[in-house]
Write a protein that binds this DNA or RNA. Sequence first.
DNA 1: CTACAACTTCAAGTGAGCTTTAAGTCAAGG
DNA 2: CCTTGACTTAAAGCTCACTTGAAGTTGTAG
Lengths: 133, 133
Amino acid sequence: MALTIGEVSRDSGVPASTLRYWESVGLLEQPGRVGGKRRYDPQILRRISLIVLIKRVGFTLTQTKVLLGGLSERTPPPVIWRELARRKLPEIKRTLAEASAIEQILQAGVRCDCLTVDDCMRRVDVALAHLTA
Amino acid sequence: MALTIGEVSRDSGVPASTLRYWESVGLLEQPGRVGGKRRYDPQILRRISLIVLIKRVGFTLTQTKVLLGGLSERTPPPVIWRELARRKLPEIKRTLAEASAIEQILQAGVRCDCLTVDDCMRRVDVALAHLTA
DNA sequence: CTACAACTTCAAGTGAGCTTTAAGTCAAGG
DNA sequence: CCTTGACTTAAAGCTCACTTGAAGTTGTAG
């Protein structure tokens, strides 16, 4: 059963215009056509969620394209994939460290009982110390 | 000792043009002037690193402005700050979960000894299962 | 005095990532 | 056949976050 762009959009939560745009920049393969209209294999949904996920973690469209291109390469083992991972891993580790620092800052904010703003800033500094130290 | 924009730029790693831009959108307070030129309190450096950090974790300039505005409010306890934290915490927790999922995918890529791309995809699916489950 | 670097403003340009618009096509229902 | 609604395209427009350019000012050194 093949899906229209409207169905794919509804099921994936990604606007049809975005799906066409992704296709135009080569992030999605050109699907089959019926009467000029796109018809998608339901498999596309898995790929789209992967794209959404990868993008949200901070990859650009181009990087995402390379990443998925690497994954779909016919040449095993996927050297591109491995290289990209090696380049991106330190970055993602830093993102994780920073995100949890911010998490601590925010949690300090949530249970904030500070009488002055300076007290808040002191908490922020403590949370930040984890990063710089 | 007051710093010129060039010194602040050098010490913080943020281009002077960006500092002026941040000031123009209200993210940085207007500093003092000597002969028309900006002079910064060294304290600004702490604020700038905080901005850089907050931005990197995915806040927009406007959100960052609200966040820091909340921090510098004269009204204790900072209600804005607490509200922002409450709104942003779930988001950042999701970011953390997703980033570590991607980390697992990338690590699978790094130690990839797959003979076929399907094996790789299988690893990706395993890593993604953590998110959907 | 001149020369120079570092600053100043304001406006326009940039690139990523879409979204919107205009004009047209297709298949199904009445 | 006509209408309706979901699709099609190409091109223009938009937001964000800056960056660049042009033209002028300031302070210091020679």
